[in-house]
Amino acid sequence: MSNQPFTLSQVRPIREAMTVSRPARLGQEVPVTWFSLGAGTSITPESYDCTTLYLGGEGSGTFVLGNDGRTVAVCPGQLLAVPPKTLCGTRTDTGMIYTEIILKKETFTMNSILKAGQPTALKNLISYEEGSIANLDLVHADNMKFVLMAFDEGTGLTPHRAPGNAILTALEGKAIIGYEGKDYELNAGESFRFDKNGLHSVTPQGKFKMSLLLVIE
């Protein structure tokens, strides 16, 4: 995957009557996978021995949780946290794409603002602060971080390097992403990948919210 803006339907398009997965290859110890489900398809419930995060990307569908098969609708821009040893499956009538993040580390911290099994709209979790950049850590361990950021108008991040591979996703507004000497416009619903130590900057065009998944290995 080249370093330029992308949507999930570009990197993992929906295929009729099929369910398809593609690893994002951010790191070995934090498996991140994109799933696409064609209309009328499903994935049989299974469980992991660790907490798993699901990020709604495009389209809509239902997650089926627990032994009682409780159904939870997940829409684009929402996050669903599933506790360890909890059965979890998916199905969709119209097609959907989502991201799965497996938290293999036994020791990690998850913000109490997240309620397991309850989808949460990411952009509603963080507020704009006048003249400031706001940060909200949702999940972090020694090998990963998932954080939200809200940029008030006139703020931004000057060029810097990160200690791991990362994917930034625009949640609201738009920004200019500088990466290794080139500028790219990023709009809500689009993502951008940074390689470890890649020089990058964020220049919002007005108010801007984003999520950042960083894998440190």
Rank of each mutant, 00 (worst) to 15 (best):
N3P: 00
Q10L: 11
P13A: 04
I14W: 06
A17G: 04
A17I: 09
R25T: 11
F35K: 02
G38H: 14
S42P: 00
I43R: 04
T44R: 00
T51P: 01
L53V: 13
L55G: 05
G56A: 10
G56Q: 00
G61Q: 13
V64C: 09
N67H: 02
D68M: 10
D68Q: 11
A73R: 07
V74Y: 01
G77V: 14
L80N: 06
P84G: 12
L87C: 09
C88R: 01
G89N: 03
T94I: 08
Y98K: 04
L103W: 03
N111D: 06
Q118T: 15
A121F: 15
K123W: 12
L125H: 03
E129P: 14
N135F: 06
D137E: 09
L138Y: 02
L138D: 01
V139I: 10
V139R: 01
N143W: 04
V147M: 15
V147L: 09
M149D: 03
F151Y: 15
L157T: 13
G164K: 11
N165H: 02
A166K: 02
A170I: 13
E172N: 04
G173Y: 14
G173R: 07
K174W: 01
A175L: 05
G178I: 12
D183L: 06
D183G: 05
E185P: 09
S191Y: 07
R193K: 08
F194M: 13
D195M: 12
K196A: 14
T203Y: 07
P204H: 15
Q205N: 12
K209H: 10
M210N: 05
